[in-house]
Amino acid sequence: MSALLDVQDLSVDFPTRRGRLHALDRVSLSIQPGEILGVVGESGAGKSLTGAAIIGLLEPPGVIVGGQVSLEGRRIDKLPPEQMRRIRGRQIGAVFQDPLTTLNPLYTVGRQLVETMQTHLGLSDRDAKARAVQWLVDVGIPGAAERVDAYPHEFSGGMRQRVVIALALCAEPKLVIADEPTTALDVSIQAQVIALLRRLAREHGTAVLLVTHDMGVIAETCDRVAVMYAGRVIEVGSVAAVVHRPSHPYTEGLMASIPALRARVDRLAQIDGAMPRLNAIPPGCAYNPRCPKVFERCRHDRPNLMPAKETQAACWLYAEGAVHG
C-alpha cells in the first residue's frame, strides 16, 4: 500500500541560547490518497509545526534535524527551495487559521486565485479568470461573477475562509494541510466551512491533514486521527476507535474531558497538571507525571507506537508481556 504522504521519525529542533529544544520528536504519520487525517492535541503539542515542516515553511530558527518526509514515495524534506516551491500549492495546498490575515488586502480575490493558478498550471489570463469564478462558485460565494473583482475586506470572515479554501485547492493539489481552519471563525460558521472542506476534498480526491484541537470537528470529518503530546505522536487510529475506545491514558483523559450535553455532572472532568514545556520534557514517556496508570518503566524508557487494542499507542501498557492496566 503506497501512502500519499509518509512522515518518518520527523524531528524538529529550535536551537536557543540555553540549548536545543526538541519541538518535534520522531513524529511519524502517513496519509493515504483521498484520506482525511486529523491531528489533535493541546496548544504547543506540535500540530501546526508538523504541518509547517511538511511543506518546508518552518519559521527560523526551527530546523529539521532528523527523519524524512516523502510524497508519493519521493523524499521532499531535503529539496532545494525552488523545487519545494513548485510542490507548495501544486502538490500540497494549505489553509491557515485566520482568514482575516491570510489574504493580501491589496489584491482582489480574483487576482490572488489567478496568480496561483497561473504560477502552477500555466493558464491563459482568460482561462484562469474563468476558473477563478468557477472556484468561487464551488466554495459557495454568492454572486461569484461579480465578487471575483472584490477585495478581501469586502467579505465576511466565513466567506474569506471559503476564498482561502479555493486558493488552497485551485492548483489541484493531492494533499491539503488545513491548520485549525475553523478556530478563528464564528461557531455558527465553523460547521459550514468544515462541511465545505470535506465535500471539496471528496469531489477532487484530495487528502487532508486537518490540524485542530476541536474533537467535534475530528469526529465529524476525519477518517483517522493522530493524537499529539509534547512534540510526539502518542496514538493513531480510526476515528471511531480513538474517540470511543482510546488506548492511551492521555487520549482517555482527553475524551473524558469533553462535556456532553446529555450527562449532568457537577464538575467537568479534567487531566491534572499541564503539558510539560519543551525545555522540561521528562525522561521516559512525556505523559508519565500526569498519568493515572504510570508504573516504573514509564519513567525511564520512552515508548514508541505499538499495537494497542484497536489503535496504535505509544504506551508501555501495551508492551508484549505487560501485566499492568
Partner: peptide, 17 residues
C-alpha cells in the same frame, strides 16, 4: 512576517511575486 506572505509562500508563488 505577516500571515498573507506566509500564505503566499504556501501557495508556491515565486519569490519575485
Amino acid at each position: 512576517r505577516s500571515d498573507y506572505i506566509k500564505f503566499a509562500r504556501a501557495r508556491g508563488l515565486t519569490n519575485r511575486a
